[in-house]
């Protein structure tokens, strides 16, 4: 227990704050994360629950969605929670391309999500089919299967781009 507490203390809070000087890679990232946090809290005024649905991605987009919950981005810290059932969700975060083999399951998940609901299509594949496009096995973009409110392009989109996309959807 002691070494763990010591490590927690030593690590401190790494969630990125606004004025913090540019850290590593993307100099705008820390400031942007903080501002997006505030905006989301302000607009929403309450918690947002997200159900992520992988409708056939290469798993690259999922890796960046995982990163949303790392302590730097700390999505849960601003009241956004990933939930286990679409029935508990305000928003579906859907990666694509939507495979034919997931088409029916995605429609069911959409129908199970209570109204009002938001859908964010993630990644080039979710937005327009990406490199996989439409084929005997792929329906392409998410919007070919269910209505979409916001799109986050990128292959895969960065965590900050994802945050921006979630914000764009709740702004609507």
């Amino acid at each position: 227990m002691i070494p763990m507490l010591r490590r927690i203390l030593r690590t401190g809070i790494v969630t990125e704050k606004r004025p913090e000087p540019a850290k590593l890679a993307d100099s705008t990232e820390p400031a942007e994360v903080a501002r997006l946090h505030e905006d989301i809290l302000h607009i929403l005024g309450r918690a947002l629950t997200i159900r992520q649905v992988d409708a056939g991605s290469c798993n690259g987009c999922e890796l960046e969605i995982h990163a949303l919950n790392n302590p730097y981005t700390n999505l849960e810290g601003c009241g956004i929670k990933f939930v286990a059932s679409p029935r508990h969700a305000d928003m579906l975060l859907v990666t694509g391309p939507v495979t034919k083999n997931m088409e029916n399951a995605l429609k069911v998940a959409y129908d199970c999500t209570p109204d009002p609901k938001l859908v964010v299509a993630v990644g080039d594949c979710g937005c327009n089919g990406g490199i996989f496009g439409k084929s005997y096995a792929s329906c392409g973009a998410v919007e070919n299967v269910i209505p979409v409110d916001a799109r986050v392009p990128g292959c895969p989109p960065t965590p900050v781009a994802l945050l921006r996309g979630i914000l764009a959807a709740v702004r609507r």
Partner: peptide, 11 residues
């Protein structure tokens, strides 16, 4: 399995 089958080999 097969849910993520998106026709890669055909592409």
């Amino acid at each position: 399995f097969g849910y993520a089958h998106k026709g890669i080999e055909k592409l």
